[in-house]
Design a protein around this nucleic acid. Structure first.
Lengths: 254, 254
DNA sequence: CACTGCGGTCGACAATGTCGACCGCCTGTC
DNA sequence: GACAGGCGGTCGACATTGTCGACCGCAGTG
């Protein structure tokens, strides 16, 4: 494969940098962070700004991400086949389980949330579509680790981050967990990322049985678990929703 | 201003093209649509794919937008100051008015929705954050046209699209409407974009009184209007919410 | 009032992206 | 089943194009 286009890779790096840092960044900060000449960074930023991918605060002259990204991100969701097929099933699952439902796909080193159904009739909740969750400490992530060889590869070398006292941080532990997941066909994560939160997830596959994503329900431990284990009835609901979506994607016809 | 970076502009054009067309596009389609050599288009697409901005269907080889855009779009929302400040007020407005609330900013030739509060306790609704609305036939758009000189400039030359029999398509009509909006301090749009839907909007300004966006409520004509006019009580609610958000942004302190 | 930092510009240079011919593959067709 | 036509993808020569670092004007600061 021939080399990537330098200016494009740099532009992408700049946008990721702007996405990462909480606050707006100045031209010099960007240039030094990515080890670019100021002139070069400026040229790229100017173009990105013209295209709407980056905005400049007229007061401070600092840069932040632009509105065009939001619009394009929305277009991504519109075309997303998995999401489109799963909309109805996710809704049903949320109603049946009475808990929040997430739909996620593997992206880079984590799970990208592409759909989110709020827990029925409850308090204010923030939409998490577009945010990322860790692979090794969430139900969605564990499912993808178990079935998607790419996901396992992404974990790679570095030590896993610990979020609570129950987070599994050893690679061996994660592999054991993946084996268990494959064996029983679903994964759970009880207070491994957020205290008090438990989730149950299952795999979604396409017509050629490739893993394409995962569904999960997520809620307070007290409701999701019983006697220290996740409630079997909820597991059944999640698995049947996952099967339904997979079937809808064409996994059933052959 | 020195010239923009060619490869970046082209990459942006490709992404917009992919966002526009409903279905996935092949390499040759992209190349001919933008009048590029196939090799050139391929180089850009390859880089975009590597960075996650574009994905390729392994079966057909065709291209579509990638997940990274969703993630970056979310980051845009996270940093967005107007949106952050408006969250609570929008919620209150939705509850008080009993209708859907939108928060929009000017983007290109339209209004980009950056926040959306569902109508309280009602049927299934789809989140419209990230989608665009026309300038000349929505309450949000009219507000921006009235107060933002850039918005008026964007309308420019071409004839305005008509969506219903009540859409104002003449530039003169739009200017009259803008003058009216400035005079009374709010805008409405009754069945001008969607049959049966009416909306009421007001301006949000920053600490230096620059227009930065608009809020509106939107709902069925039967509930929003009374005797052929929008209900004064709803107008009052929207205007007070807009003032509250503006104050929160610092417009009040001087 | 120098000084230091900022965002932004400029012009020379060569690295870099671009182009169009070419390749192998698949699909449909006669 | 041979052929044609389309596809996505590659390659290497060429010069266009992006890059670099010195420079500019301005704001804030001691």
């Amino acid at each position: 494969m021939p080399g990537p286009i330098q200016s494009l890779s740099r532009a992408a790096a700049i946008m990721r940098l702007l996405a990462g840092g909480e606050r707006r960044l100045g031209l010099s900060e960007v240039a030094t962070a990515l080890d670019l000449a100021k002139g070069t960074a400026h040229g790229i930023l100017r173009t990105l700004q013209q295209e709407g991918f980056v905005e400049q605060d007229p007061e401070s002259g600092k840069y932040q991400l632009g509105a065009e990204l939001l619009r394009l991100g929305q277009s991504y969701l519109d075309v997303h086949e998995l999401r489109a097929r799963a909309l109805v099933w996710a809704d049903d699952l949320a109603r049946a389980a009475g808990e929040t439902v997430y739909l996620g796909v593997l992206h880079q080193r984590g799970v990208l949330i592409v759909h989110h159904v709020f827990r029925p009739d409850d308090t204010r909740q923030v939409l998490e579509v577009g945010s990322m969750q860790p692979l090794h400490s969430t139900a969605l992530g564990k499912v993808l680790l178990a079935y998607d060889p790419v996901a396992r590869g992404e974990l790679g070398e570095e030590p896993l981050e610990s979020y609570t006292s129950r987070t599994l941080t050893g690679l061996a532990d994660v592999d054991t967990e993946a084996a268990l997941t494959r064996e029983r066909g679903w994964a759970d994560a009880v207070e491994e990322t957020w205290e008090g939160v438990a989730s149950i997830g299952a795999l979604i596959q396409d017509r050629r049985r490739n893993p394409v994503g995962a569904v999960c329900i997520s809620g307070p431990v007290e409701r999701v678990c019983e006697d220290g284990f996740v409630r079997p009835s909820l597991v059944a609901s999640v698995r049947s929703a996952a099967r339904a979506i997979s079937r809808d994607l064409g996994a059933g016809r052959f």
